[in-house]
Design a protein around this nucleic acid. Sequence first.
RNA 1: GCCUCGGUGGCGGAACUGGUAGACGCGCUGGAUUCAAAAUCCAGUUCUUUCGGGAGUGUGGGUUCGAUUCCCACCCGAGGUACCA
Length: 938
Amino acid sequence: MGYDFKNIEKKWQAYWAKNQTFKADNHSKKPKFYVLDMFPYPSGAGLHVGHPLGYIASDIIARYQRHRGFNVLHPQGYDSFGLPAEQYAIQTGQHPAKTTEENIKRYREQLDRMGFSFDWSREVRTSAPEFYKWTQWIFLLLFDHYYCKEADKAKSIAELKKYFEKEGNLTIKAVCDSDTPSFTAEQWHSFDTTKKEALLLKYRLTYLSETEVNWCADLGTVLANDEIINGVSERGGFPVTKKKMKQWSMRIGAYAERLLQGLEEIDWPDSLKEMQRNWIGKSRGAKVFFQIEGHNKKIEVFTTRPDTIFGVTFMTLAPELDLVQELTHPDYKGAVTAYIEETQKRTQRERMADVKNCTGVFTGAYVIHPFTKERIPIWIGDYVLADYGTGAVMAVPCGDQRDYDFAKKFQIPIKNIFKGVSLNEEAFTDKGTAVIDQSDFLSGLTHKEAMKVVIQELEKQKCGEGTINYRLRDAIFSRQRYWGEPIPIYYKNQQPQAIPVKQLPLTLPKVENYLPTQEGAPPLGNADQWAWDTKKEKVVANKYIDHKDVFPLELNTMPGWAGSSWYFNRYMDAANDTAFAGEDALNYWKEVDLYLGGSEHATGHLLYSRFWQKFLYDLGLVPVHEYAKKLINQGMILGTSAFIYRKAGTQTYLSSNLVDSTEKVEPIRVDVNLVNSADELDIEKVKQWQPQFKEAIFERYQGTFKVAREVEKMSKSKYNVVNPDEICAQYGADTLRMYEMFLGPIEQAKPWNTAGISGVYNFLKKYWRLFYEEDQWIVQDSEPTKKELKVLHETIKKLREDIENFSFNTCISALMIGVNELTALKCHKSSILSPLTILLSPFAPHIASELWEHLGNKTLLDFEEFPLAEASYLVENTKNYPVSFNGKMRFTLELALDLDQSAIQEAVLNDLRTVDYLAGKTPKKWIIVPNKIINIVY
RNA sequence: GCCUCGGUGGCGGAACUGGUAGACGCGCUGGAUUCAAAAUCCAGUUCUUUCGGGAGUGUGGGUUCGAUUCCCACCCGAGGUACCA
């Protein structure tokens, strides 16, 4: 019989479920430990072997920490709003909630088979009304707050109103839209409610504005910047264009500096922090105001090089700017309008494709240089982005390559303001060696000096000031989709109004059709029941709109990242229906101690969730302002696709070792599950697999037909998906878990290769044989030898170190070494095997539980103490001893007393260098452990 | 282009602060057991060699008694970002 993983795994999974072994308590004297996975989107395809990688790692940590006496919170849930379910609904008419429910069921079955120690009593689903009630609640909190720069935190809109009543907005330091007009307290009092509301909206942390958005026509929705990769949509790869639309946005920009600062406090991968830093994109420079000639307005520009201000020879505005229409000289109107239309038509991808080929037109207008008072022509060009800085740049062709290219192309003069530099080929952009010239009071200064002087002068003359700019844009929060959280807002006199909090959740209405309406409104426009009755405080039918108390509801829904921006707090108290999480629970669990997930969320989820956490912290609703202390990015598991080669134009396929360069062949993918571990294809199965192979001829080489391999992303369309269910059925969950960890370092991307799994499987069988011989229990109670103890304690030491460094692949190596040595020693002693089994349990919990039960008939494996190596034979009997060499250096050798003499002599004699070191004083009773030289003294 | 990380056998990968490079596993080779297969066990497996050795961690330099590890330059790969003024 041997190692019967099927029954063992079934038995223990049932036991854990029945006893709720992994249910975490919100009250405990033990220290807490919260280990979290990024929750999955339950897709229709189910899990493949790559998905559980992070869950296995987190489960090892969770089980390890329980052994170490922590009260562990290890929850799981589903990020269940999303596009695929909705696309499926459009095609089939099936309600996304139903598809989602089915997918979740499938996911749960697959997860359960792998023996994870999740506390399922805390499961969350972002698409459940009990959950999104609180997502909507947070949305309304954001709607009801603004960002006070003085206090450097969010404050309520009520406070803002009071301020306006007293002082208007002339002195307030708050984050707001760039086009916010100034007003005094008197003016404020004179405004009607609608006007007041419109002004307040410019301050709210979630606000409505007419913005240039990334419009994806194929998906019928707008996309956030992080949802666009290389100018096309992340999902589907469709083209993206710019479009002006009224959209909800999140004022994440208000938190830019704090999001940057917070990175210093958290233990996240450097690469990921760097990505967030770049995304936030802080740059120091100055604002400069240029007076428009014959006009009462000024153009404000942002520049990081105010020191080059005397090199300005033209000005470029983004074509989208409203100001362009206003200042364009009538003679140039035609050209300018044509150019603007042209740029609007281009997709983002086209725009990116010809970066080299700069375009633009002259507006016929001029500004006045603040220092030289020269006339400077105003151009527009699409290399200037409307939504960065002020959408206007002072062009310094001598110091900026883009300005240089633009000037060359349109034959605008280039003024050289650098000493001893040639500008024939390109602009001079080196800040380190620049010496300013031809620049009045800046001449002769270095870049650094000139920066200081010019900012002082700008501020003195009130035509500019030193400033800091961020690349981080406010995040668009509206999606023209059905399957998302409804935004709890209705419109009265065109102004957004909050749904009363006690009426949440505002649940999704039924619709017949998940496509946009004929008028182009989002899918919620199809709902018959989607209006808000302010008197009854409930949703009513649309036909009552314009009755006295009934108003239209918002038709957009929230984006995918809404629910995931706060779900980690919900797990702390998932069943609470009076708060998003109870205060006690929040104060007990505080933050995630270890968060595992992919680095693809670096500038999306992981930034937005930090922003929401900081906002909730400002309101005193959560106890910490960074929610995840440590984060690990697990690497992707890639597929190993299999290829066969078809002779061009025939139905003949060649074994990969028959292909030579003279033959014209086409590589064709075949299902990896039809290939054995020696890369040999099962031809009979291929013939049944797809009709095109039924009549095909397969040319073998020496009796076998081999495929070629290539590593690529695991996906259904590449026929390289390996299903964990099948691996579990064939080798068991414990083998799968260990093998995934054994593949390589957790952070690294690595290819899946089923062939290698036998190593781990053999290990578990070998482990079993330490306990059973031909189904006879052979474990005895006798005293362990020192050698056996040494093996055990070396394993403990290595394992503990490696688990704490998340180096699971080397952990497993250490276990294998230990087991090999004990097998060689024929050790079947319970005093050795009991602690070893606890060591094994985080990795292979089922087999460990089973053997543990046989060993000690004690209670639960899960609350035994993890063994310590500190008190071990190895450590206690080892001393460090200094030895000199060549009279120059001093080494410290680790010594183990008490080992037999022949072993020492062998070790010493086999290593010439070691003998040299110890010439003349080779110790009789010492063994030299190499690589332990820790100190060199000259 | 810029930022970040990486480059070690046939393969996945070890090597903590510089100290016997290639742990562990896969694969491969030979052997034992078996009617045979599976399973299991044992031995070998960086390259090269005239069997003394010699070479070897992407390339070329440097520091050091000693470098996969530190420094400089370059080449290659992965990820991020992209007219950010």
